[in-house]
Simulated assay, not measured.
Amino acid sequence: MGPRCSEVTAVGRVLTLGVRPWLMGVVNASPESFSDGGTVRGVDSQLERASQLLTEGADIIDVGGESAVTNQPALRAEDEIKRVVPLIERIVNELGAIVSVDTYKAEVAEAAIAAGAVLVNDVSGLRDLALADVCARTGAALVLMHTRAAPKQRLQDPDRYDDVTNDVVSFLADRMRAATARGVADDALILDPGPDFAKTPLQTIELLRRFEDLHALGRPLLLAVSRKDFIGALTGRRPSERLAGTLAAVGHCLDAGGHIMRVHDVAAAHDYVTVRAALRGELEVNRTLALDDSIRHEQ
């Protein structure tokens, strides 16, 4: 099935989702990040990375100042703000990109939106309702993610859920009610089932097998499957070696109607969705399409 078309309001913008897959490229301003922390080298380098991701086909740049790794303490809000605000300002002003901020702290979200972010990617499951207040006041879009663990805590309990998909649906429905009760518009909400968050690899796999069930909630779906633990558990690969597994998960979730794919390897994901769309008849292919001789052979 294809994704259901939906519009998302985000600080005066209207994001039309579902016509084609959107790619959210990841720019980490967090040296402790599990996947690419060793490459974080300051704002200039991060801006260059954002520019590269946009060239490769990213529709949204997701800026995060604190990694979800559980072997590090939580950052103070003021320290997280110092990491993300200068970068967001430059991405917006110099690159003209749509920017999301990956944070669960209301103070960070407020500063990031003031700097130009239009979407808040909250991986806490809206534990702090003040975050909804910020989005309601500013008009920012809000990603609500399923998790039963507090930020920076790891929950791996194979007996935690009788039915993990039902738990995700009921949890997200509750969080939607909580957000709208604080004034967040219905059309500002995006949902993320939270692969790996408070889930064992098997629980994540069981959830993604029934991904279509989430359409009952009526909002666009964001999938953050890139380089995730469940892929590593299945393949025995380290994060940097999980591209093939990531693309398999992306394809499955697109087939089930996903709207936004949050990925580290934007160029590969863009190639994947381009070829997929052509073969499915979703991309018009000109009869003059031909391979440029300069790329026919390896040099």
Rank of each mutant, 00 (worst) to 15 (best):
R296Q: 13
G194E: 02
G194M: 07
D79G: 12
D265V: 06
K199V: 08
D122T: 06
A97G: 04
L126G: 02
V184Y: 08
V168G: 02
L87F: 06
A269S: 15
L17K: 09
S51H: 09
A267E: 12
L234I: 14
L221A: 08
A277K: 05
P3Q: 08
T274M: 05
D187P: 03
G218Q: 04
K152D: 06
V168D: 05
P193T: 01
V108H: 00
V250A: 12
R137E: 15
A278C: 13
M176K: 09
A140N: 07
V285C: 09
A106F: 04
L23H: 06
S170L: 14
A268R: 10
H215F: 01
D122N: 08
R41E: 14
V118M: 00
A216N: 03
T9Q: 11
L214K: 02
Q203A: 05
D128T: 07
L144D: 10
D157V: 07
A50L: 11
A244F: 10
H259N: 15
D79A: 12
P193C: 02
A178D: 15
P158T: 04
H252N: 09
T180K: 06
V266R: 10
I295P: 01
A278Y: 03
E66T: 10
F211Y: 13
S124Q: 03
D174H: 13
V14I: 15
H215S: 14
C253W: 08
K199W: 02
G38Q: 10
S45R: 11
Y272C: 10
E48D: 14
D213T: 11
V26W: 04
S6G: 02
E206F: 04
V101W: 04
R227T: 06
E241C: 01
R76M: 09
V123Y: 00
R4F: 07
D271S: 12
R276K: 15
L75A: 14
D159C: 04
G12S: 10
R296M: 06
S294L: 13
L126R: 06
A140Y: 03
D187C: 08
T39L: 14
E107H: 02
V8T: 08
H215E: 13
R127V: 05
I91S: 00
A68C: 12
E298N: 07
M1H: 11
V275K: 03
T103S: 12
V134K: 05
T165V: 14
L119F: 04
L119A: 01
D102Y: 08
D162H: 13
M145H: 07
R90D: 06
P195L: 06
P220K: 03
D162Y: 07
Q46K: 04
P151E: 05
V40S: 10
R177N: 10
A188G: 07
A290N: 08
Y272M: 15
R227P: 04
N28T: 13
H215I: 07
R76A: 12
Q72R: 15
K152I: 05
V8E: 08
V63M: 11
P239W: 07
S6L: 12
S45W: 09
M1T: 11
N71H: 14
T16V: 11
E284S: 13
D196L: 01
T235C: 04
R90M: 06
